[in-house]
């Protein structure tokens, strides 16, 4: 938390109640700072994204910067930690450079807080991607989602969820094909025979392998960085933080604004296609109190903001997909 003096806090608070409300950099209450997003920043990850809120394009630094990356790992269900259908683990690391004022212990606490919120919300069963299993009762994918907060200029929760959503959107699960080991007839030594589990002539996919109970192991039919996107990637929630001061609330607070509001209200929304939006989680942060009736209106408002955020993010993610695939191909062809 950035140190602020009482008079600075009072200045920010009274400006919120002015008409029209004005913030330090002239934004209105519902304005976000400029958000920069890039996916596929980490070549060794299965999906990755870099997100910055509030960076000035001319400057080297500034803004809240978050790096998110996913990595898939094979887990054994029988002998290891694996669970049927795979699992998701989120970890948040805060760079000490982002919080120079914090001691190592305080930094650990902060990381733990962020990790808990993110993990609880994203690993909820209602969001679980269906294609994380490899072989039923034997092998499954462990999806590690790691985030690093490289710098903090306020509104870290929204930034983390946006980056996490972008990285998960970008994640490719390698296609697997089950293999079976069969003993040959007498006279020959045991030899592994690959058997393509090709049902009805459709191309083999990891999904098909589940039907085959005898599969012992799996192989990757193509390169490890190819694959299909995580199933249900539209469902990943966006989080919106409402900074509440008395009757006024505003979005995308800077550090000094965060320090001058008594409570923050986090709502994570998931927008399933062709069905109404779903509240995934609600958290309150800070010492302030919120009345139940107030919370109701806040959730309604948050839904509106989250929808805008969701639409904008989806559009940007599609743009990124085009930039990285189609345009890259054209560029490569014209080189």
């Amino acid at each position: 938390m950035a140190a602020t003096s009482k008079s600075e806090r009072a200045y920010i608070q009274s400006a919120l109640h002015a008409s029209p409300p004005l913030r330090a950099d002239g934004r209105s209450l519902q304005d976000f700072r400029n958000v920069l997003l890039e996916t596929g920043v980490s070549p060794l990850a299965n999906g990755s994204a870099r997100l910055n809120i509030g960076k000035n394009p001319e400057e080297g630094g500034g803004g809240t910067e978050v790096l998110a990356a996913t990595k898939l790992e094979v887990e054994d269900i029988e002998t290891g930690d694996g669970v049927e259908g795979g699992r998701l683990i989120c970890t948040v690391t805060c760079s000490p450079a982002a919080y120079p004022q914090l001691s190592m212990n305080a930094l650990d606490d902060l990381q733990y807080d962020y990790t808990t919120v993110l993990h609880q919300i994203l690993s909820h069963p209602s969001l679980h991607p269906k294609n994380l299993g490899i072989i039923p009762r034997r092998k499954s994918w462990l999806l590690n989602l790691d985030l690093v907060i490289l710098s903090d200029a306020g509104n870290t929760y929204d930034a983390m969820f946006l980056a996490a959503r972008a990285a998960l959107w970008d994640t490719k699960v390698p296609i697997t094909r089950a293999v079976q080991y069969q003993a040959r007839t007498v006279g020959e030594t045991l030899r592994a025979v690959e058997e393509s589990m090709d049902v009805e002539g459709v191309s083999p996919s990891g999904f098909d392998t589940r039907q085959i109970p005898v599969a012992a192991d799996f192989e990757l039919p193509d390169y490890w960085d190819e694959g299909e996107p995580l199933e249900g990637r539209d469902l990943w929630p966006v989080c919106i933080t409402l900074n509440v001061h008395e009757a006024v609330h505003f979005l995308d607070a800077t550090l000094s604004e965060e320090a001058s509001v008594p409570s923050q209200f986090l709502v994570a929304f998931s927008f399933p296609p062709s069905s109404p939006s779903r509240v995934q989680a609600i958290r309150t942060i800070g010492s302030g109190e919120l009345q139940p009736s107030h919370i109701q209106t806040l959730v309604q408002e948050a839904e509106k903001y989250a929808r805008q955020l969701h639409t904008a993010l989806n559009a940007k993610l599609r743009d990124e997909d085009i930039r990285r695939h189609q345009k890259a191909k054209v560029k490569f062809a014209n080189r």
Binding site: D31, F32, N34, V35, E38, R50, P57, A312, R323
Partner: peptide
């Protein structure tokens, strides 16, 4: 309310 843009090249 919110605009996304790319990192400068």
């Amino acid at each position: 309310m919110i605009t996304f843009s790319s990192f400068p090249a």
